[in-house]
Each structure stands twice: as C-alpha cells, then as structure tokens.
C-alpha cells in the first residue's frame, strides 16, 4: 500500500523537490560524517566576525567570534541534527512497534501493563522528561540519544496499538487464525505489512521532533558538547545580533527551516496519499 502511495507522491513536483532537499541534507551530513566535509570548522579562517563573502565557499556565511567559518559550522550542525534525527527514529521505532503491537494484539493483562507504562510516561511533559534524562545522564550526545529514544517511541506505540486492535477483527486475521497460523506469523506476516505506512509516517515526525529537540537541548547546554550545533549557533547569535552580526543566526535558521519545511510538506503529501478520505 505504501509503495504505491510513495510512487504516487513522487510523481508530483512539490513533494519531489522536498524529497530532493532532504536528500541534499542527507548527503551533506554523510559527507561531514564520513568524508571530513567541513571538518576544519574549529580552525580560524580569518579575522573575527568577517561578513559573508561569496567568492570563497568557506566564507559564504562569514566568520564567528573566533574567526571560524560559519559555513563549516552549519555543515557540522547538519551532521549533528541529522544523526540525532535518524538515530532516534531507528532506535525508537522497534521499541514502539514491539510494545504497540504486543499490547494491541494480546490484550488482557499485558495490554494493561503496557498502557499503564505509556500513560505514566506521557503524564510527564515531553520537554521535562527530555531535560531530566539528559541532565541526569550527564551532558553529551549519548544522553540526547537516550532521552529522545525514551520519549519518541510512546506515540508510535499508542498509534500501533489502536491500529492492531482495529485490524484484529478483520476477516483476514480471523481466517489466518482459523487456518492455524501461529501468533508470530500472524503478527509479522499479516499485521505488520498493514501498519507499515503508520510506522513510516510516525518515523518522519520522530525525525522532525528529534531535530527540534536537539536544537533546544543544545541551546540549554545539555546537548552536543564538542561539535557545532544549530542550537549552539543560535545561542551564540543571541549576543551577536546587537553588534550587527546576523550571519550565524541566518545560517542555522535557514538550514533548519529548509529541512523542517521539506519534511513537513513531504509528510503532508504522504499522509494524504495514504488516506483515501484526505482532502488536499
């Protein structure tokens, strides 16, 4: 179902452009992570607070207080943001899938315990849970990954639980049971393909929320420590604006805006394509 929907989505122009934007971000992050793109961000390339100069790539966004290239910092920030987004989604999706499907499929006591756990975790406002986890685990990336994973799986588990309960009564599952298909096979071969689109959609939003949260945590000084991050760049910009230095804020804001915009729009199109009743 979702393969058809994706093919339908990418035949249109706007979602295709959004997909290309996301792909470009992924490529920048990949190059920064594995090929040393922008790795020289901590080496001064000129004087303090030089304005943007378009003749030289590393000067496109000027320099910061230590004369470092803001362009390189933005590139390294992209790497941090995307790795947080992707790692969070990859780690929390299996947790959400397992808890949600088991809870909805088996019902009874297991369901009650899992629902209790989910309700408990969602009674603590997300942002406080994030802050509390990354504060107590010590500042740094590992804490950010754990904090975001611990909070992101909850909504997916809840959505899947509802979906599975809905599907459980459908003929194809009843038929599978009548034919003597076991639980494991029924869950993985019959149920899972029917909820894959929900998982994909949820993971898109996990990436978005994770990137937003990373920026916030880094801004609070709880996030990444030895690498540039969009949040830290915006934090720097707080003091710079009054002296007329706007390029650091612009670099981080534009980068984050483009990525969020592309994810939002693409997510909309995918959701509409998956939902036959949706209205564009």
């Amino acid at each position: 179902m979702w393969q058809v929907a994706l093919r339908k989505v990418f035949r249109k122009k706007i979602p295709l452009i959004c997909g290309l934007i996301i792909a470009a971000f992924l490529m920048v992050a990949f190059a920064a992570q594995f090929m040393g793109f922008g790795a020289a961000w901590d080496i001064p390339v000129g004087g303090q607070y030089l304005p943007p100069d378009f003749s030289d790539f590393k000067m496109w966004l000027g320099t910061d207080i230590l004369g470092r290239s803001v362009m390189y910092k933005t590139i390294q920030g992209t790497r941090v943001a995307l790795s947080v987004g992707i790692i969070t989604a990859v780690l929390s999706a299996p947790i959400g899938i397992i808890f949600g499907m088991i809870s909805g499929y088996f019902g009874g006591f297991i369901d009650e315990v899992i629902v209790w756990f989910i309700t408990t975790l969602s009674s603590i406002p997300n942002i406080l849970l994030l802050i509390a986890i990354s504060y107590t685990m010590g500042r740094g990336m590992t804490a950010v990954y754990i904090a975001l994973t611990a909070t992101s799986w909850i909504s997916l588990a809840r959505i899947l639980r509802g979906e599975v309960i809905k599907h459980k009564q459908k003929e194809y599952l009843v038929a599978a049971e009548a034919l003597g298909v076991g639980h494991t096979q029924r869950i993985f071969k019959h149920l899972l393909p029917n909820v894959t689109h929900q998982i994909i959609l949820s993971m898109t939003f996990m990436v978005e929320i994770a990137i937003r949260s990373e920026v916030l945590l880094s801004y609070l000084g709880l996030g990444v420590q030895n690498l540039p991050s969009w949040g830290k760049m915006i934090d720097d910009a707080k003091g710079e604006l009054s002296t007329g230095v706007w390029w650091q804020l612009t670099g981080a804001t534009v980068a984050m805006f483009l990525l969020m915009f592309a994810i939002n729009v693409l997510g909309d199109y995918v959701r509409d394509a998956l939902d036959p009743r949706a209205h564009v």
Binding site: V215, Y219, L241, F257
Partner: peptide, 22 residues
C-alpha cells in the same frame, strides 16, 4: 502556515526581542 511552522522557535524569539523590542 507550513512556513510559519517550520521556522525554529528560537528564531522567532530572537527576532522579536531584537527587531521589535530592541
């Protein structure tokens, strides 16, 4: 409104405080 949603919240605050107030 998608554009409004996609801008980072810190950018709004900095913009408001710096441009509109300061």
């Amino acid at each position: 409104f998608v554009i409004i949603m996609s801008l980072p919240s810190l950018a709004y605050i900095l913009f408001g405080q710096f441009i509109l107030a300061s």
